[in-house]
């Protein structure tokens, strides 16, 4: 019975391989549980006019982005111009989801940092955010023509993410019939 002495070595090899794999991953970035599922329904007042409502219907019929943001979110400031660039380059409308914010703050923020959104839905309680599986701000969802979530970016969109993932995905979804 001499062969069992190699077992510890084998365990180590497995462990090191696994940990090495772990190093290539970002543990804090989670894929959305909603990928390839219909966007959760919502019915929220818009920022511009509290009496007007925007619903999931707005996501039907065209490829769109949903960007979750708030005026208290520092990372959103830098992201704002990038979101504008994406709409400019792809023509995809962005629906802003103003998450747990105060109306005056949000309105002022848009005048200061620019308004890349076609419409801003106000989720003051964060209830819709929970339905969308929003953990932090900013988060960005890609929704296709059928209103199905196809991609999600957690945190501020980086230059690389925009060029290598978001824009190609948006273009591909747009060109699909």
């Amino acid at each position: 019975m001499r062969w069992p002495v190699v077992i510890p070595g084998l365990v180590l090899i497995g462990l090191v391989a696994m940990l090495g794999y772990g190093l290539t991953r970002q543990p804090s970035i989670l894929p959305s549980a909603l990928l390839d599922r219909p966007a959760p329904a919502f019915n929220l007042p818009t920022l511009a006019n509290p009496d007007r409502h925007v619903t999931t219907q707005a996501l039907q019929g065209q490829v769109s982005l949903v960007n979750v943001w708030a005026s208290w979110c520092v990372a959103c400031r830098a992201e704002s111009s990038r979101v504008a660039e994406i709409t400019q380059r792809t023509g995809v409308p962005v629906i802003g989801l103003n998450y747990k914010d105060k109306r005056p703050d949000a309105t002022r923020w848009l005048t200061v940092f620019g308004n890349p959104f076609s419409v801003v839905a106000v989720d003051a309680s964060g209830r819709v955010g929970i339905d969308w599986g929003v953990a932090g701000v900013p988060e960005t969802f890609v929704v296709d023509r059928q209103g199905v979530i196809r991609y999600k970016v957690v945190g501020a969109i980086t230059e690389q993410q925009m060029n290598q993932r978001l824009i190609p995905i948006l273009n591909k979804l747009k060109s699909a019939s």
């Binding site: 989670l30 894929p31 959305s32 549980a33 909603l34 959760p40 929970i130 339905d131 969308w132 599986g133 953990a135």
Partner: peptide, 8 residues
């Protein structure tokens, strides 16, 4: 919650 946030 799993439906929204995953098994995580």
């Amino acid at each position: 919650l799993v439906d929204r946030y995953g098994a995580w």
